[in-house]
Design a binder for these strands. Structure first.
Length: 859
RNA sequence: GCCGCCGUAGCUCAGUGGUAGAGCGCAUCCUUGGUAAGGCUGAGGUCGGCAGUUCAAUCCUGCCCGGCGGCACCA
């Protein structure tokens, strides 16, 4: 009998020891072995802020569970790590503290690498790179020039989103509710020359291919679909009636069926025709100017009241040249969607109706809802947008909406007045950033030759070493010598492009670079053919229409350029929830850190006071951990007290991975207690004995059931359920202790503990190794195969069947597994408890569901 | 307004057309040489509401209520 003479489990000793053992054994090196199935696990790589937070712990622990699990199941696993290292924080630090952004960034990387390594992740660190490595962004410049040569990259002057705080341009996706996604500043409109990537060329594919991404959350697919915003409709021309500066106006509509309900034609304030009208009509000019001023920001456009100006111009209705429609300039029409001009059908479009009611324009319904009388159906203040039958529409009368659409489009095409057309909400991706700490755009501007690509053999275009960050604005542009160069074409004087690339460009191909991070070409095709696509990608939902859309686009563009074989980068996507914590505020509203607060519990009531003073503290909702609300918990402090495994276990155990997890000190203590109880069970098992008895059948069955459940839970991303099963099983082990256990129990425990050590390895890898050694396992757990189960043993030999009388539970019986209904009926009717219940009743029917339940219908 | 997700013990969440579960918290007791610890036992649930399908609904269907998220003058 093992005396309780050993020490408690000591993570401080154990955890670093095993991390060193894994490193020494090079356990996590990814090897492209053609004889084994591959599995590529990737978490969205971090920005090197220099500090690990709980969100990182959860993100990387989730990926590590998958990586370790797949490795144990015989896959050749790639699980790399890198740094999304360009971006503004480094420049801001340079401006505020006079440090060099490069040095600042690499310092942060060094610090964060140490912290990440402490997590015990099964990462192949030999593939690590940072996007600010010249080696990486030089290759990015190479493929950028390839796309430039193919016309997928271009420069144009246009109205762009300007972030006044970050002093740079933002892409549409990076403007949220009219504010910059990083800075939160209200975005302004500016006219600038900018570099764009032609993502709209791929709008159809980006939409169509979503359907095949069946291991992506529906939510993300819906968000991308909405963002791309494909709509099918008709573009056609209205001919002008009478004197006009133009002969026709082209409009776009998704409702060609409602053409007989048209009230007016509307054009955007910045439509070329509006400018022509304004040139001769001072009132029109004033209106256009008012629209322009009023619409300085995205947020204002959305809330603005509908306003219009009647130009006095008239167009002919395409179906009836004698029917004239007025042409209005309207502030709610967007120049950069469709053709910047519409026809309005107020009866069946709410915006048009609001406008027509305001200006007293006619409203003529042309779609009759089912069951309505055409003589009495009328439009009030609400447009009718539902299904129905055409009326008031001459030759279209009686058709349904779809047939009417088809017929009108066909007529327009035959008459050469218009054509069926697909329009997207998606805009080309603006990639210019007026910042120095980013990937330089590898072109020069020559007075003679214009924009000229830097020759490939002159890449990389690297940053100068001495950038002056003491003033705001683009430090690269201000540098005294860097931008002055010669034209590669004519040899004359030229200046370098001083805009750099959006950091989302950096992150839109890094996953492919990991296949071989030191290849001469941007992407090593042979290596990428083996590893790509990423089988499981893990990250936050906040990138649903940013990073994830850009990465899909770049993958397709590089595939079309012959640099990649896959057309989708991420076969599986998982979006994990956030780590939240309760918030605490003093009476004066000041936020308090969790450690400053003392919580007392009386019954089910929790109270908080400020430590030391006893001042009452308001306990607020659990919210995402943030510096501003001071509700953060530092991972290293948790590691120090409870160990890494307990921290990993807690963030994995308390919620399904796609939901938020609420960090509590009680929760992490619970995880810590589990770690200790697990160790106790292993520690109490006698060492060095061989099994002398047939293993206890019940414990054996429970073990096999556990292996099945945990395996399935990991396969389906229900890690918390898997861990719940492990908790339950530990209770069962406690009920079958080694101390004083029969030879049968000891023998069954042997099998149970061997499986258990391997089952906990993805969650608490260090503890698993320690346990494995304790029971005399071969080598290390990281090298051990995943436990298997015998399906026959996952079922109980004797089933307890609940017995219902008229649907209510009245007792239970035991029956052999698989017992036939007739046999079960006999057992039921022989049971005194049941027969007593049935006294005075006539049994009408007995329903036996094999191995599950019996229901007696009686009256 | 449209689309989606969620609602199960005090809290955070599993779960299933057929016996309602885990962790934490709470209560009682034991241990006081694992001790800023360990253990035993227990209480606590109209499974958001109403209706329907069914022998049987927490689970399926419909409607409603509440919470969260995304989209939203996109013609």
């Amino acid at each position: 009998m093992a005396p309780h003479d050993s020490k408690r489990y000591n993570p401080k000793e154990s955890e670093p020891k095993w991390r060193k053992a894994w490193t020494d054994a090079d356990s996590f090196r990814a090897v492209a072995d053609p004889n084994r199935p591959k599995y590529y696990v990737l978490e969205m790589f971090p920005y090197p802020s220099g500090r690990l937070h709980m969100g990182h712990v959860r993100n990387y622990a989730l990926g590590d569970v998958i990586a370790r699990f797949k490795r144990a199941r015989g896959f050749s696993v790639l699980h790399p790590m890198g740094w999304d290292a360009f971006g503004l924080p480094a420049e801001n630090a340079a401006m505020e503290r006079g440090v060099d952004p490069k040095a600042w960034t690499y310092d942060n990387i060094a610090r964060m690498r140490d912290e990440l390594k402490q997590l015990g992740l099964s990462i192949d660190w030999s593939r690590e790179f940072a996007t600010c490595d010249v080696e990486y962004y030089g290759k990015q410049q190479a493929w950028f020039l390839d796309l430039f040569a193919k016309g997928l990259v271009y420069r144009k002057e246009g109205v762009v989103n300007w972030d006044p705080v970050d002093q740079t341009v933002l892409a549409n996706e990076q403007v949220v509710d009219g504010r910059g996604w990083r800075s939160g500043a209200v975005v302004e409109k500016r006219k600038l020359s900018q570099w764009f990537m032609r993502i709209t060329d791929y709008a159809d594919q980006l939409t169509d291919d979503l359907a095949a991404l069946d291991r992506w959350p529906d939510k993300v697919r819906v968000m991308q679909e909405n963002w791309i915003g494909r709509s099918k409709g008709l573009k056609f021309r209205f001919h002008m009636a009478g004197e006009a500066p133009v002969s026709e106006i082209e409009v776009y509509t998704t409702r060609p069926d409602t053409l007989y309900g048209a009230s007016f034609v509307g054009i955007a304030p910045d439509h070329p025709l509006a400018a022509e009208v304004a040139a001769r009509d001072p009132k029109a000019a004033a209106f256009v100017e008012e629209c322009r001023r009023g619409a300085a920001t995205e947020a204002e456009i959305e809330t603005a009241e509908k306003k219009g100006y009647d130009t006095g111009l008239r167009v002919k209705h395409p179906f009836d040249p004698s029917w004239e429609l007025p042409v209005w300039i309207a502030n709610f029409i967007l120049m950069d969607y469709g053709t910047g001009a519409i026809f309005a059908c107020p009866a069946h479009d709410q915006r048009d109706l609001d406008f027509c009611r305001k200006y007293g324009l006619s409203v003529r319904p042309v779609i009759l809802p089912d069951g309505e009388d055409p003589r009495t159906f009328a439009i009030g203040e609400e447009a009718y947008t539902g299904p129905g039958i055409l009326y008031n529409s001459n030759g279209l009368d009686g058709l349904n909406i779809e047939s009417a659409k088809r017929q009108v489009i066909q007529w327009m095409e035959t008459e050469r007045r218009g054509e069926g057309s697909t329009v997207f909400r998606l805009r080309d991706w603006g990639v210019s950033r007026q910042r120095a700490w980013g990937c330089p755009i590898p072109v020069v501007h020559c007075e003679k030759d214009g924009v000229v690509a830097v020759p490939k053999d002159a890449l990389p275009v690297a940053h100068p070493a001495d950038i002056d960050f003491s003033k705001s604005g683009n430090a690269l542009d201000r540098h005294p010598t860097w931008k002055h160069t010669t034209c590669p074409k004519c040899g004359g004087p030229a200046t370098r492009e001083t805009d750099t690339l959006d950091t989302f460009v950096d992150s839109s191909w890094y996953f492919a670079r990991f296949a071989n991070p030191h290849a001469d070409e941007p992407i090593d095709q042979a290596a990428a053919d083996y590893w790509m696509p990423v089988d499981q990608y893990i990250g936050g939902i906040e990138h649903a229409v940013l990073h994830l859309l850009y990465a899909r686009f770049v993958t397709k563009a590089l595939a079309d350029d012959g640099q990649l074989s896959v057309r989708e980068p991420f076969a599986g996507l998982f979006t994990q929830g956030m780590v939240t914590h309760e918030t605490y505020r003093r009476q004066n509203g000041e936020w308090l850190e969790p450690r400053e607060v003392e919580i007392t519990v009386e019954g089910n009531l929790r109270r908080a006071v400020l430590g030391g003073t006893g001042e009452p503290v308001v306990i607020g909702d659990s919210e995402k951990m943030s510096k501003s609300k001071r509700n953060t918990v530092a991972p290293e402090e948790i590691f120090d007290v409870y160990g890494v495994d307990a921290a990993r276990l807690f963030v994995l155990s308390d919620s399904p991975p796609d939901r938020d997890v609420q960090w509590t000190s009680g929760g992490v203590q619970g995880a810590w207690r589990f770690v200790n109880r697990v160790w106790d069970e292993f520690d109490s098992q006698p060492q060095g004995e061989t099994a002398t008895a047939e293993p206890d059948a019940e414990l054996r069955r429970a073990t096999h059931k556990l292996v099945k459940q945990v395996t399935e839970a990991i396969d389906t991303f229900r890690f918390n359920s898997g861990i719940a099963r492990l908790y339950e099983f530990l209770n069962l082990l406690k009920a079958n202790p080694a101390k004083g256990g029969s030879p049968a129990v000891l023998a069954a425990r042997r099998e149970a503990l061997s499986a258990f050590a391997r089952l906990i390895a993805p969650f608490t890898p260090h503890l698993a190794e320690e346990c494995w050694v304790r029971i005399g396992g071969q080598g290390m757990v990281v090298e051990a195969p995943w436990p298997t189960f015998d399906p026959a043993l996952t079922e109980d030999a004797v089933k307890i069947l609940p017995v219902q009388v008229n649907g209510k539970r009245r007792g239970e019986i035991s029956a052999p597994a698989g017992a036939e209904p007739a046999e079960v009926e006999k057992i039921v009717l022989a049971d005194p408890d049941i027969t007593q219940r049935l006294e005075g009743l006539t049994v009408r029917k007995i329903i036996v569901v094999k191995d599950r339940i019996v229901n007696i219908v009686a009256a």
